[in-house]
Amino acid sequence: MNAQIHRKQYGRGIKSILRSWQLYVLLLPALVWLIVFCYRPMYGLIIAFKDFRIRQGILASPWAGLKHFKQFFSTYNAKNIILNTVILSVENLLISFPIPVIFALLLNSVENGRMRKTVQTISYAPYFVSTVVIVSIMQTILAPSTGFVNLFLQRMGSSPILFTSMPQYFRPLYIISGIWQSMGFNAIIYLSALTSISPEYHEAAKIDGASKLQRLYHIDFKLILPTVVIMFILAIGKLMTLGYEKAYLLQSGMNLATSEIISTYVYKTGLMNAQYSFSTAVSLFNSLINFILLMITNIITKKISDISLF
């Protein structure tokens, strides 16, 4: 409503731009930042198709076509790295995504306000802890001879497990620590959607004899479903942009079979071995898959539920 009035009042075109010049001035620093630190690096992506040499700069370096992409696909562990990325991403999404929703639904069903608030406060705590600290804590409590987890296992008669160096434990550790860290924070959105549900629905359902669990599903869950869907699309849009910080920190020479993902590989080949063009090609490949996934999800959800990002 208001928007329309404004539009009529000020008209479109140059006149309205001139009229809003002060707003553009407020926006200017951010716009400059956006161009320099987001779009300029995107332009830098063309080194994936060149043999980049620092002295020659981006433009003068000779073209290399798809050489670096081919080189990546022909490395012996390319398939493994891609698979690791896909498996970790998908497992992480499917396991971590529903948990904040369930947590929010359960927490919202608690009638004691003080308890609800306390649990909520506690659940946010890990979000403010750094990845370095989280990995340090994991490595400490899971240590083979000094961590209490392994001492407990030993007392139960099992031999100590080298959690942080065995490939089969990398994904569970990555995913569980992620849930531990962000469950509470990710639930905020759902909790706020839940508080906006009118209590009348619940009253009516109670009279009709719906049990608490039924109400939880048929009222609470169904009413926050649009929010859940949007969050799901967003999560898919970031599916392949796994936090490489944690993967890198959890990596050891021994668990590379599962812990080497595209982004850690890019970091190592690019910044540690200075293979700039090659690693940019690998990273671009990752971004493209990610972007295609986002588009596909967006189309599918638009068809099914009329909810979409673009």
Partner: peptide
């Protein structure tokens, strides 16, 4: 009432899903 805000917002949002990655940023 700011002209072009949708387009500018899109330019910002786009970077949430697509970025230059670490090497171009490092070189920059």
């Amino acid at each position: 009432d700011m002209p072009g805000r949708r387009g500018i917002m899109f330019l910002f949002s786009f970077t949430m899903f697509f970025s230059g990655g670490i090497i171009p940023m490092f070189l920059l």
